[in-house]
Simulated scan of single mutants.
Amino acid sequence: MVEIKTPEQLAKMREAGLVVAAIHKATREAAVPGATTKDLDDVARKVLDEHGAKSNFLGYGGFPATICTSKNEVVVHGIPSEDVVLEDGDIISIDCGAIVDGWHGDAAYTAFVGSGHAPELIELSRVTEESMWAGIAAMKQGNRLVDVSKAIESYIRRQPRPATGKYGIIEDYGGHGIGTQMHMEPHLLNYVERRRGRGPKLVPGFCLAIEPMVSLGTPRTEVLEDDWTVITTDGTWSSHWEHSVAVTEAGPLVLTAPDGGKAKLAEMGITAAPDPLG
């Protein structure tokens, strides 16, 4: 059931991934106090148009926008709106994707709006991002799906507890396969659930969107009346980071990172795969 990609197909996914990276750069620059989340969506649409790419979010299951804009206690799937204004001290997770010649890219990041953020929010984002990279580092031949889940969870559990008492690893949402569709088998938990077993073996051409979501409190969520917006049940703020990643014989290839993940993986003592686009 897992779609395995050829090197030529990975090159197309890399093209889509670079469009996603361009959207991240543009929306990060636009996420300033006074901007609306609709403004950010407009920025993303412009980048897609400039690259001749299509959105894989717009219309997906009826989703009405190009990106997800999840502010503060919103974990994921926030709908851009003219009524949601960014304020100094907010955090916002922006999740977006692109399609190039039928191949998908998908990634997310958490941004800080303005200045003066509480240390626990800065640490929350750091822990979430670093847990993603721990999962990426586990994307190597011979490992199994559960090794990625274990790496993510283990990193989070090792961190000092925040002032709120704990980090909540969101239970109802996780990573996924990606390729000719945005969401494919297998589903990737951000923690280990023993009854699921070890999962499929990671082989060259195996691609995952790795996306931990972590709150400053509960791991539990609820969906608002719009049938999309997911919030923490206790109102604590959350962070979301994601990259699309491929297993190759030469190491992990981070399809949605501008440099393919080379710099960050080098810090971890891991050699990233060569960029198929040169």
Rank of each mutant, 00 (worst) to 15 (best):
V84M: 12
S131N: 05
L58I: 02
R126Y: 14
E87N: 15
L124C: 10
A118P: 13
H104Y: 08
Y60T: 12
P33G: 03
V85F: 04
N72P: 04
G114F: 08
E82Q: 13
L48R: 02
A35N: 03
G52W: 11
S149P: 09
D41T: 08
G97Y: 08
G78Y: 00
G78K: 00
I92R: 05
G105A: 05
P64K: 05
V148P: 09
L40N: 04
E129H: 14
G105R: 06
A134G: 10
D49P: 12
A30L: 01
V100R: 01
G34V: 09
A138D: 03
V85D: 10
I79P: 07
L121F: 14
R144M: 12
W133Y: 11
V113F: 09
D49I: 13
K54D: 14
T37G: 00
V85C: 10
G135K: 09
I94S: 00
E129G: 12
H104F: 11
T66P: 09
A134V: 04
V76W: 13
G135V: 07
I91Y: 10
H117I: 00
A107V: 11
A65G: 07
G34Q: 05
S93E: 01
G116P: 02
R126G: 09
E120Y: 14
N72T: 05
A30M: 06
N56W: 11
S70R: 01
T37R: 07
R45C: 13
G34Y: 03
E130S: 13
L86E: 05
D90F: 05
V32M: 12
D39I: 11
L124Q: 08
M139L: 06
P64T: 00
P33H: 05
D106P: 10
G116V: 04
A65T: 03
A107Q: 02
Y109T: 14
L121P: 08
D39N: 10
I122W: 14
T110G: 08
D83R: 14
W133T: 05
I136S: 02
Q141D: 12
S93V: 07
E29Y: 08
F112D: 03
S125C: 15
A44H: 06
W133A: 06
G105F: 09
K46D: 15
A35H: 00
K25C: 11
V32R: 07
T37L: 10
V32T: 14
A138I: 00
E123P: 05
K38V: 12
N56Q: 10
F63N: 02
Q141E: 15
P33W: 07
Y109M: 14
P119H: 01
E29S: 15
S149A: 03
G116M: 06
K38I: 13
T27Q: 08
L86D: 06
K140S: 13
F63G: 04
V32Q: 13
I94V: 10
F112A: 13
